[in-house]
Measured scan of single mutants.
Amino acid sequence: MAEQVALSRTQVCGILREELFQGDAFHQSDTHIFIIMGASGDLAKKKIYPTIWWLFRDGLLPENTFIVGYARSRLTVADIRKQSEPFFKATPEEKLKLEDFFARNSYVAGQYDDAASYQRLNSHMNALHLGSQANRLFYLALPPTVYEAVTKNIHESCMSQIGWNRIIVEKPFGRDLQSSDRLSNHISSLFREDQIYRIDHYLGKEMVQNLMVLRFANRIFGPIWNRDNIACVILTFKEPFGTEGRGGYFDEFGIIRDVMQNHLLQMLCLVAMEKPASTNSDDVRDEKVKVLKCISEVQANNVVLGQYVGNPDGEGEATKGYLDDPTVPRGSTTATFAAVVLYVENERWDGVPFILRCGKALNERKAEVRLQFHDVAGDIFHQQCKRNELVIRVQPNEAVYTKMMTKKPGMFFNPEESELDLTYGNRYKNVKLPDAYERLILDVFCGSQMHFVRSDELREAWRIFTPLLHQIELEKPKPIPYIYGSRGPTEADELMKRVGFQYEGTYKWVNP
């Protein structure tokens, strides 16, 4: 592979701008107003304001973009700056750019259920340069409990009458099928589907988006991507930290609602779906819905739930269990780990287990898709061969690698495990991989909904998990304890083995 010439960040961002501006969906010269509902909250200060700053800094926003914060707290732009700027990672050389960014910011205080507050917000936006005809993007960085009041008031008082209007809704989209349907029906009564952007930030990850290209742009994968060759698929999300004093919020939802029903299920769809007619948003989402419709409700015998306990040999936070978090209700049975087996009941995947695993306070930070292939028929190497695996590593250190057998150097035919490896950090030294939120917010500006969740996708996802969630809430089974920093409950490994996964433990990928 030829040595790549190092590029400056300015040059890299210039390439990104060229890609972005050559499309006809990006209205570079139009006025846009980006409204952050819930501007005083954690999500706004840690993710949304920093993301908008990065896009502005790199010249990736339309030229005439204004940012308006809205929340109940009586704040000023200076207050917003004070709480969000520490997350910007701005350099001293960017000081003038930073001043320009905050000059485009404003803030309006108001209630979430008060019509007069929204009329005041609308008047404020109209007073901005060309504000009355601007395109408006409303980001709901809010708890779902206020979605209905907020969307109703936005629709009645704050819509642009000339430009387009788009609304970005953060997960969780309800707690179960019934609450999700209620919320979807409410929002759909106010906005068209092409105006609604239900954001799952995992769909903005580079390697998640790469799944489609790997599958449908490489001839070698087509013939082997089926039940005849693939023994099982494992989708993993692991965090090495616990709730760390923020367990009160987590306890309301648990690990299945927080990660599995959305992030992991979306990745499953991209692995299992048929080739779409095109890369058009609805063509892709149509195929994802077909996959979900082929999955039956989760069966309790295919589920393992766990909850982390303190590690007596650990240090600091590792010595504390979930129930030691003062914000967690006493005696909570909320799971911090889950392993679930699903089956896609169609011709391509009949009988292939899709194993979804996620948890907190585990032994490493990792998100990946792992396809394990069947054993080689007619073994001539005296059971020395391990199964081939194709691994798409989402985070950290984005990579695609194939675990395969090669001859060990020497005189004899002794096979050993090795890999074919594409590590993004080595291959793409001159490429700026956008943060997931950067990519998705740019998608909203461009009107691309491919990486957002459609209402029928959402409904099918909740259909699969709601009976299990209701059973857990009714019966309150005690989750299996696992030690902070471990791989999780051993019962999860036993479940995976029972459905056909072979864990060798003899080879570990190392970032080159």
Rank of each mutant, 00 (worst) to 15 (best):
T243A: 06
G204T: 00
G110D: 02
G245T: 08
E156N: 13
L137I: 12
I230H: 04
P172N: 01
Y147V: 02
H124L: 08
D58L: 11
F56E: 00
V233Y: 02
L98Q: 06
A25Q: 10
L137Q: 07
L43S: 04
R215Y: 03
K47T: 02
K171M: 02
I33V: 12
K152D: 12
G248K: 05
A71L: 03
S132G: 09
E244C: 12
K89Y: 09
E19S: 15
M125N: 08
S184N: 13
L7Q: 15
G204K: 02
S40P: 08
A127T: 11
I168E: 02
H186M: 11
P240G: 10
F88H: 02
F250D: 04
F191M: 10
F216E: 01
V169L: 08
R72P: 02
V12S: 15
Q133R: 15
L121I: 10
G245R: 08
T151Y: 03
N153A: 12
Q111E: 13
I168Y: 01
L183V: 05
K205V: 05
S8D: 11
Y249K: 03
R175Y: 13
N165M: 11
R17P: 14
I167N: 01
L177R: 11
E85F: 08
R9V: 14
G247M: 06
F221S: 08
E94V: 06
A115R: 12
P240D: 14
C158E: 02
V208L: 15
D58M: 14
T31Y: 12
F253T: 04
S180I: 02
L121W: 01
R17V: 14
D251N: 14
T243H: 02
D30G: 10
A39T: 01
A44M: 01
F88K: 00
S157M: 15
C158K: 01
N126D: 15
G163T: 04
S106P: 02
R72W: 01
L177W: 06
M159D: 08
F102S: 01
E206C: 08
F173K: 04
N218L: 01
F87M: 09
L190V: 13
D176A: 00
L190P: 01
K238Y: 00
L211K: 04
L137F: 12
N165L: 09
M159A: 13
S29C: 15
H201I: 03
L43Y: 04
G248C: 05
S29G: 09
E63K: 15
R81S: 06
F26L: 07
V233L: 05
Y107E: 02
S160Y: 06
T65D: 05
Q119D: 15
F34H: 06
R219V: 12
G131S: 15
D200Y: 01
I15M: 14
F253E: 02
F26P: 13
R72L: 00
A116K: 11
T243K: 01
P92N: 14
A127G: 13
L55I: 07
A231G: 09
T145R: 06
A103T: 12
V150T: 11
L130R: 13
G222T: 11
F237T: 08
D176M: 08
E244W: 13
V12Y: 12
S117Y: 12
I224Q: 11
E156L: 14
F173S: 05
E93R: 13
F237W: 11
R182K: 13
G41P: 04
L16V: 10
D181A: 11
E252A: 11
A115G: 08
N135F: 05
K238W: 00
T91R: 15
G254K: 04
L128V: 12
G254C: 04
E239W: 04
G174S: 03
S8V: 07
Y118V: 08
P92K: 10
R175C: 12
M212H: 00
S29R: 13
R175K: 12
M125R: 04
E18W: 07
E239Y: 00
I234V: 14
F250Q: 01
C158S: 07
Y118Q: 03
Y139H: 03
L142H: 03
Y70K: 03
A44Y: 03
F26E: 11
G248S: 06
L75S: 09
L43C: 04
V169F: 08
G247F: 07
V12W: 15
H32D: 08
S180N: 11
M125C: 13
G163Q: 04
G131W: 07
V12E: 10
I256P: 00
R136S: 06
I256S: 02
Q133N: 10
A115H: 15
I80D: 00
V233M: 07
H27R: 15
M207F: 01
S40T: 12
S189Q: 14
D58H: 11
I167C: 14
L16C: 09
Q83L: 10
G38K: 03
G131I: 07
A141C: 10
M212P: 05
F88S: 06
T31F: 10
K46C: 01
N229M: 07
D194T: 12
T236C: 07
P50A: 07
D113T: 11
R74C: 15
L140V: 11
D251V: 01
S132I: 10
K45H: 14
N122R: 13
P144T: 00
L183H: 02
K89M: 10
H186F: 12
S160G: 12
N210W: 04
N229T: 07
S29Y: 15
A39M: 06
F101N: 00
A217D: 03
G222F: 10
E252Q: 15
V169S: 00
I255E: 05
V233E: 01
R215D: 02
W225V: 06
N185Q: 13
I234S: 14
A134G: 12
D194C: 10
L96D: 13
V146H: 05
F88P: 00
W54P: 03
L142N: 04
R219Y: 06
K205A: 01
P62H: 08
I187P: 04
G174Y: 00
P86E: 11
V233C: 10
F26S: 11
I80H: 07
N122Y: 09
G14V: 08
G242V: 03
P172G: 04
A127K: 14
H155R: 14
D113K: 11
T65N: 01
F241D: 04
R72C: 01
D228I: 07
S184D: 08
F250T: 02
V169W: 03
L235P: 02
G242A: 07
S180F: 05
K152T: 12
L177P: 00
M207T: 03
N135V: 06
I199Q: 06
E148K: 11
N153Y: 11
G59R: 09
G69P: 04
R227M: 09
I224D: 06
F101P: 01
Y49Q: 03
K46L: 04
I35A: 08
R246V: 03
P86G: 07
I256L: 13
W53N: 02
G131F: 08
R104E: 01
N185A: 13
W164A: 06
R175F: 11
L7D: 14
Q209C: 09
I67K: 04
G14C: 13
Y70G: 03
G38H: 00
D181T: 12
L140H: 06
S189K: 10
I36M: 03
P86F: 07
Q111H: 14
Y249R: 01
I196T: 10
T10E: 15
Y118H: 09
P62R: 06
S180G: 06
E93C: 13
Q28Y: 14
N135Y: 06
N64R: 13
R74F: 15
G38I: 01
G222M: 12
A44C: 07
T145E: 00
E18A: 08
N105P: 03
I196N: 00
F241E: 04
S106Q: 10
Y197H: 05
Y147E: 03
F221E: 00
G222H: 11
K97A: 10
R136H: 13
A39K: 01
P172V: 00
N218M: 03
G14L: 09
L190F: 09
L16S: 10
L137H: 02
A103Y: 10
Y139D: 05
I199Y: 05
I168M: 10
R136I: 08
E19F: 09
I48D: 04
I230N: 05
M159R: 13
D100F: 12
Q83A: 14
Q83E: 10
G222C: 14
P223C: 08
I48P: 04
G41N: 03
F26Q: 13
L60V: 10
F250M: 00
H32N: 11
N122F: 09
L235S: 03
Y197K: 00
N64A: 07
E252M: 12
G245E: 08
L16F: 13
N229S: 09
A115P: 09
A231F: 04
W225Q: 03
R166W: 00
K46P: 03
I35D: 04
L190C: 13
L121E: 01
S188R: 09
Y202I: 02
K89E: 15
D100Q: 15
L43G: 03
F191P: 01
M159K: 15
F26W: 12
I224R: 05
I67V: 13
N210R: 04
E193Q: 01
E94K: 03
F221A: 08
D176R: 04
I52D: 01
L142T: 06
